Simulated assay, not measured.
Amino acid sequence: MLRWAVIFLVIALVAGIFGFGGIAASSASFAKILFFVFIVLFLISLIFGRSAKS
């Protein structure tokens, strides 16, 4: 999932350089959403992964 966030971030940067503002904005927002979902899932896996082993 983090890979997809980075891919959409790169798409947003390239689209921004070439002047496609709408595509850049939507790609950047989608990358931001994916990044935060990744962080939440990572934290949940850390919390529940440690409690299952104990």
Rank of each mutant, 00 (worst) to 15 (best):
54 S>P: 00
20 F>Q: 07
18 F>K: 01
52 A>C: 06
29 S>L: 15
51 S>F: 13
2 L>H: 13
48 F>S: 02
25 A>L: 15
46 L>Y: 09
41 L>E: 11
48 F>D: 02
45 S>F: 14
49 G>V: 04
44 I>P: 01
29 S>Y: 15
45 S>L: 13
53 K>Q: 09
43 L>F: 04
26 S>T: 14
43 L>S: 07
47 I>V: 04
12 A>R: 04
28 A>C: 10
28 A>W: 06
47 I>F: 11
23 I>E: 07
13 L>Y: 12
40 V>M: 13
19 G>T: 00
26 S>R: 12
20 F>D: 07
21 G>T: 06
2 L>Q: 10
13 L>D: 09
35 F>R: 10
46 L>H: 07
40 V>F: 15
30 F>D: 09
38 F>L: 12
8 F>D: 12
49 G>C: 06
43 L>C: 06
7 I>L: 11
7 I>G: 02
8 F>G: 03
38 F>C: 13
50 R>H: 09
31 A>V: 05
15 A>G: 04
52 A>R: 14
40 V>G: 01
33 I>N: 04
42 F>Y: 07
11 I>M: 06
9 L>D: 13
47 I>K: 03
53 K>E: 13
17 I>H: 01
23 I>T: 05
3 R>F: 05
11 I>S: 04
21 G>A: 14
43 L>P: 00
28 A>I: 07
7 I>T: 08
27 S>E: 10
11 I>W: 08
30 F>G: 09
48 F>Y: 04
41 L>R: 11
24 A>D: 07
51 S>N: 10
40 V>N: 02
21 G>H: 12
25 A>R: 14
9 L>F: 11
13 L>F: 13
54 S>T: 05
40 V>L: 15
47 I>G: 02
50 R>L: 14
36 F>G: 00
20 F>K: 05
22 G>W: 13
1 M>T: 02
14 V>W: 00
8 F>C: 13
46 L>K: 08
24 A>H: 06
15 A>N: 04
10 V>H: 02
15 A>S: 10
41 L>T: 08
44 I>N: 00
33 I>D: 03
13 L>M: 09
45 S>C: 06
17 I>D: 01
29 S>I: 15
28 A>R: 08
31 A>T: 03
